[in-house]
């Protein structure tokens, strides 16, 4: 991978350069500030496949820079690993919300960094394919251009420009990164679009991806003012990690989301009106769940939402059934 590292500490940049030098498949360019980095990006012909960003820097900080990169079509999905001494949850939340892919706290083990780089390599390849399709595309054209690659119902679709919505792999890194105590006040909830498979079969890839994006916006907005991050996990299902809620009136929340979706007046490209509704699974408190157990909680939330949708359909079909009597 062609990596750009940005840190105001020259020693960190030297360590990273020395480290990358020992690996055959990576090369690194370094910058001591965001201004330098932007200058390098502007003048460098070769596309960067990965960014390593410090947070606390004079001038523009690493989180702001992360947001700037996500505004560029060339770096919409490129892996961004925050490499920072800021270990507080508020920084982790802001970084992932700004589009970070992963978060490593300093001091870091070089072997650990090697592992994280190999994990993002696959994402880097997908990101390069994405960016090559999007050269000079306006934000409105992004989704249309992106769905030229074939969609799969069960795979996560990247969602752009929706506040509080992050990519699915970033969500897994987010919950893995948080400590047990930080996850203690958080709840994970799955939401699923009812009849998502039917929608997927009946809609064009572009229309389906628009529905997925619009619904993500409704979910994310309705979870406010709580601190929340939402990701689309595929199969019409989203997972949300919500912080600081002691009690959730799930029925009211889902009703509010459905009203919000209804108010969006979703329709297909040829003007056909769409009736899209969601339902939610059982909220799952992340008490004492950390690392892989927290990732497992995301999976459970996903399953719970889809089970709830199936249950709802069974109950609805029962309303009109009559008891068979001899």
């Amino acid at each position: 991978m062609h990596i750009l590292a940005v840190d105001d500490d020259p020693i960190i940049l030297e360590i990273l350069s020395a480290f990358v030098e020992t690996m055959d498949d990576h090369e690194i360019v370094t910058a001591e500030s965001v201004a330098d980095a932007l200058n390098i990006i502007e003048h460098q012909e070769k596309h960067f496949d990965c960014f390593l960003l410090d947070i606390q820097m004079p001038g523009t900080d690493g989180i702001e820079f992360c947001g700037i990169l996500r505004e560029m079509n060339a770096y919409l999905r490129t892996p961004i690993i925050m490499l920072t001494a800021m270990s507080e949850k508020s920084y982790i939340d802001k970084a992932f919300n700004a589009g970070a892919t992963d978060y490593i706290t300093k001091p870091f083990e070089l072997n650990g960094l090697k592992g994280r780089l190999s994990l993002v390599e696959k994402i880097a390849i997908e990101a390069r394919n994405t960016s090559s399709k999007l050269t000079n595309a306006s934000p409105l054209r992004r989704n249309r251009d992106l769905v030229q690659q074939e969609l799969n119902l069960h795979s996560p679709i990247p969602i752009f420009d929706v506040d509080g919505v992050i990519e699915n792999h970033a969500m897994e890194n987010y919950v893995t990164k948080l400590s047990r105590s930080e996850l203690c006040g958080s709840v994970v909830i799955g939401f699923t679009i009812r009849h998502a498979a039917d929608l997927f079969c009946n809609l064009s890839d572009f229309d389906f991806s628009c529905v997925i994006t619009d619904v993500s916006e409704a979910i994310s907005d309705c979870l406010l003012p709580a601190q929340r991050l939402v990701s689309y996990a595929g199969n019409g299902t989203y997972v949300a990690v919500v912080e600081g809620v002691t009690h959730i009136d799930l029925e009211r929340l889902v009703n509010q989301m459905n009203r919000c979706i209804h108010a969006m007046e979703l329709c297909t490209s040829d003007g056909m009106s769409l009736d899209v509704r969601i339902c939610a699974g059982r909220p799952n408190r992340l008490v004492w769940r950390k690392g892989t157990a927290a990732v497992e909680a995301l999976r459970e939330a996903h399953i719970s939402a889809e089970d709830a949708a199936e249950q709802l359909e069974r109950e609805l079909s029962c309303i009109w059934s009559t008891e068979m009597t001899a």
């Binding site: 500490d9 020693i11 960190i12 360590i15 606390q56 001494a85 300093k106 001091p107 870091f108 083990e109």
Partner: peptide, 17 residues
């Protein structure tokens, strides 16, 4: 101190960091 803490551990000076 923030800068010292950020690199000391990686270079083998964990206690200092």
């Amino acid at each position: 101190l923030h800068k010292i803490a950020g690199t000391a551990g990686t270079l083998g000076f964990e206690q200092l960091g």
